[in-house]
Design a protein around this nucleic acid. Sequence first.
DNA 1: GGTTGACTCGTACGGTGTACGATGCGAGTG
DNA 2: CACTCGCATCGTACACCGTACGAGTCAACC
Lengths: 237, 237
Amino acid sequence: MAAKRSGAQSKRSQRKNVKLPSVQEPPLSLERIVATAVELLDAQGIDGLTMRRLADRLGAGAMSLYWHVDNKETVFDLALDSVLEYRGPQQTGESQDWRADVVHMLEGWRASMLRHPWSASLLPRRALGPNILSRLELLSRTLSGAGVADADLNAAIWSLWNYVIGATITRANFDRSDDDMTAAQQRLAGLSEHYPTIERSRLLLDNDWDGTFRKGLDFLLDGLALGTGRDAAGRNP
Amino acid sequence: MAAKRSGAQSKRSQRKNVKLPSVQEPPLSLERIVATAVELLDAQGIDGLTMRRLADRLGAGAMSLYWHVDNKETVFDLALDSVLEYRGPQQTGESQDWRADVVHMLEGWRASMLRHPWSASLLPRRALGPNILSRLELLSRTLSGAGVADADLNAAIWSLWNYVIGATITRANFDRSDDDMTAAQQRLAGLSEHYPTIERSRLLLDNDWDGTFRKGLDFLLDGLALGTGRDAAGRNP
DNA sequence: GGTTGACTCGTACGGTGTACGATGCGAGTG
DNA sequence: CACTCGCATCGTACACCGTACGAGTCAACC
């Protein structure tokens, strides 16, 4: 009976010598599976990812995937976490401008997810992978180093995290909805009648998403600095 | 050729006299379908909702649903929006404590969604239904009445909305993950090694979610009040 | 009686995730 | 060399999914 790799902790055992010199399809591997899954998700969206389609793209049979992966759920987990990989300085020391650091960090986070809009929809249902945890760790370290009181630290971390998640999801959702402009148009036609304030503020129409994100983040950081007794260093006028 | 109800705007035409006096199963209706869908989602989660299962619960054939509903997607849309129905005062006038109003409003919002954890996972992918828009309208009106500057209004609305969405999703996600404690335990075992700051702050462990939500909301409102030149009325010591 | 329209549903089709067992293959051992 | 064994691949099959299609029922109206 085949033992079937389960925990996914052991690397794929590499053969000593790869024989065939010009193989068309390289062998399956966890890395290739995840990378191709991301491609497929980018191209076709969440419903476009199918085990059979994924295997086709890899030049393999559908069931071959299951040697490397427990089930489809873990493909989603791995794809999501891979998209959130953070490449950048792991600055642990105190920066002169912690606030700019945080803004930069969170904007990069948001950008990573908007580059793969499906990731925002996926995040709510999936576990925290190592890359997500790394980003949390970095955020945590930065805030801690910035002098946020221990009693406020968790609330600070979570509020920033939540804000980024929510803003990204909202934004990604609007991108998607704008695909079918006709529905949007006719929906907005009846808005002014029932939702006058929304209509007047043009909340749903020509929003500057990047600017809005930044502005809300500034609100949050202002309150945070105020709450922890530090002045809001580096706030732009 | 049957015309098949599409736009879903017309109420179901009621027959003059309903004959059979003691029918076991009441006739299908959009309301009953949506209500049963919510039941099913509560009981079995997102993947548990199936057109066949839904029809079974209603004592009907699967295809009968399609007279009332275009497709499964709209069942999700309707279920989500129905869960977010807001019952409460539509206060338009200026309250003495706008801040308490906002807190109360958003906490109710969050509570509604946590009562149906699937709703948080659904929100990112679904359109804005009338109930969602109503809540946005109310929030918008309250902030506007509280004297938030027009230039800041949209950013204020979106930042609060984003925060609530993100916080609810994070919370609901943790509830779900805690179901399989074994995985959580063994995952946390390796935490201290790679993520020392997270480990030390016990960020993922015994979090007081309600308190954290409130605290982060206070940060945001502090910053908002500060940004708009008003003092932070009613902030608790 | 005949027609029409609202509503229900049985059947069928193409697709899905994946359990199971057969197969191939390279390396190690005798 | 023959043999075994573990890794890796894959064909087949099953239960289930969303839903297109068209036939059926039944009340209301001409």
